[in-house]
């Protein structure tokens, strides 16, 4: 109980951000996010990670799409913890994280991590760290749907 209260206190420290986007993250949305940073002239380096749905072949069947689902309340708290930790660990100017919910087809983008800093090292290191944290600690699940409409549950690897 105390731990939960501790987190909700922390959450007032910085405003909550919406991470989840219904369906795929469009290239236009990503381009627009980059463009919005042109006014922030203290930034010297951006690093971006984009996760794309792979058309894996499993037992002779191709993945057509992934249907993502989440434990929303816990995922939002986790994303918030990751944001707070990244800001204290790395010298970042700003950070944006977006993840899809629902159906994302093979070839489309489901994760967009965007970090900015004065110099490249902080951006490179933070981006990698954030992606690994998301994969390991945020309660998100993915159903890999095959072209014949059968499916299997995806599990993250360390690759």
């Amino acid at each position: 109980m105390d731990a939960t209260n501790g987190i909700s206190k922390n959450m007032t420290a910085r405003k909550k951000h919406n991470v989840f986007i219904e369906g795929a993250i469009s290239p236009a949305f990503i381009a627009d996010s980059i463009a919005k940073h042109s006014t922030k002239t203290n930034i010297g380096a951006h690093d971006i990670f984009l996760g794309q749905v792979r058309k894996d072949e499993i037992n002779g069947k191709n993945v057509y799409a992934i249907e993502y689902s989440t434990y929303t309340e816990m995922a939002e708290e986790k994303f918030h913890e990751i944001r707070e930790a990244a800001f204290s660990k790395f010298d970042l100017t700003c950070m944006h994280i977006y993840h899809s919910n629902g159906i994302v087809k093979a070839g489309e983008i489901s994760l967009f991590v965007f970090v900015s800093s004065a110099h490249r090292n902080a951006a490179f290191e933070a981006c990698r760290w954030i992606v690994e944290e998301i994969k390991a600690n945020v309660p998100i699940w993915g159903k890999e749907i095959f072209e014949d409409e059968t499916y299997q549950w995806k599990e993250n690897t360390n690759k």
């Binding site: 939960t4 993502y68 989440t70 994969k135 549950w153």
Partner: peptide, 29 residues
Amino acid sequence: IAVNRIIAKDNQQLEPDSEIAFLPPFAGG
């Protein structure tokens, strides 16, 4: 298992109003 949205370590004590979630392996990203 998550208790009140925090991953439980070992055998955690519960309150009557605890929210207990069963979480399969994560697959975000």
